[in-house]
């Protein structure tokens, strides 16, 4: 089997498996998995910047929130139906990531982390400040009657799972396509040796900006779908915790792998879900598990898989 065929088989296989699960899973894990797929889409977006371009952002919650609020506010205040509202979320994320990219990319390393963190804090505080429209901390519910996309009722668990899977597959395959294209290879080159990439004639700034916009827009798309599928938009999704989570998911699953963000999100979701059922000190157990994993699988789960077994894993 050629490398490309193997790569397609693996990722299409995952999508097919997830599709089958929709017909067999009981309600509780079905709902969990839908949530995991949307959050994994967010992690896939984060991974474009962190895993493939080598830029560590501490503020991605602002993009997730831009999508969520772009969608939610346009529905609530402008009466947009679901489709156009999703596009509004997408547009908000693209515009915000372009502006943040233009400004934050003047810095590098730790300064880039701080600047993204600050921008995200500003977005978070803006959501609180305009509480009249956003209802601040409390957030707002998106009424079930509005959660209809192309005639499909998104509050129905089966439909919701199906749409989450469609979003996840779209993000997965778009990023797979992107990083196999010449422009995507340049991102990896920048991650590995920025000065060398520049001396091969690549415009490093333009490529990084493209990566910020792609990453931010995918994150916003995930945020918009999250609000629509689960019927709620709240300021907690813009808080710093939601900037750290995708970093953890990607690190655990394997930075710079296509499948890693999903594995990491799934792993962490169930780690917390299972341990919280056992003890009230579940965060301690989750923490220990994370430490062990970083000690023994520093490249993340999919990263180790690539190192030990499947060198072709993209």
């Amino acid at each position: 089997m050629s490398e490309t065929a193997r790569i397609l088989a693996l990722h299409a296989g995952l999508v097919a498996l997830l599709l089958v699960l929709n017909f067999v899973l009981p309600a509780y894990p079905q709902g969990n998995l839908a949530r995991i797929m949307v959050l994994a889409s967010y992690a896939i977006g984060y991974n474009v910047l962190f895993g493939y371009t080598g830029l560590l952002s501490l503020g991605h919650a602002m993009f997730f929130a831009a999508g969520m609020y772009g969608m939610g506010l346009s529905m609530r205040h402008l009466g947009f139906p679901a489709g156009p509202a999703l596009l509004a979320g997408l547009g908000a994320g693209a515009a915000l990531s372009l502006v943040v990219g233009l400004l934050a990319l003047r810095t590098a390393g730790v300064a880039f982390m701080i600047v993204t963190l600050m921008f995200a804090q500003a977005v978070y505080l803006a959501i609180l400040l305009f509480g009249k429209y956003t209802r601040g901390d409390e957030g707002f519910v998106i009424p079930q009657a509005d959660r209809v996309l192309a005639g499909i009722d998104l509050s129905d668990p089966f439909n919701r799972y199906f749409v989450a899977l469609a979003l996840f597959s779209f993000c997965l395959f778009s990023v797979l396509w992107l990083i196999r294209r010449p422009a995507g290879r340049v991102l990896v080159a920048i991650r590995e040796n920025e000065e060398r990439a520049r001396l091969l004639g690549y415009d490093v700034f333009a490529h990084k900006l493209g990566a910020v916009v792609a990453s931010g827009t995918i994150s916003a798309l995930a945020g918009a779908f999250y609000g629509l599928l689960f019927g709620y938009a709240g300021a907690s999704f813009a808080a710093v915790q939601y900037s750290i989570l995708p970093l953890l998911w990607v690190l655990l699953g394997g930075a710079g792998t296509i499948i890693g963000p999903f594995i990491g999100t799934l792993f962490m979701f169930y780690l917390i879900d299972l341990t919280s059922g056992l003890t009230s000190a579940y965060m301690l157990i989750a923490g220990v598990a994370l430490v062990l994993l970083t000690l023994f699988a520093p490249q993340g789960l999919a990263g180790e898989l690539r190192k030990r077994l499947w060198r072709w894993l993209p």
């Binding site: 080159a189 590995e192 040796n193 060398r196 520049r198 001396l199 091969l200 690549y202 415009d203 490093v204």
Partner: peptide
């Protein structure tokens, strides 16, 4: 002109201290 623009005009440079993409 920035580095990449000069390279596009036809300059190429190899470093005194080797600089390649080690993990590729």
């Amino acid at each position: 002109l920035p580095v990449h623009a000069r390279v596009r005009l036809g300059m190429a440079y190899t470093f005194q201290i080797t600089s390649v993409f080690l993990r590729l």
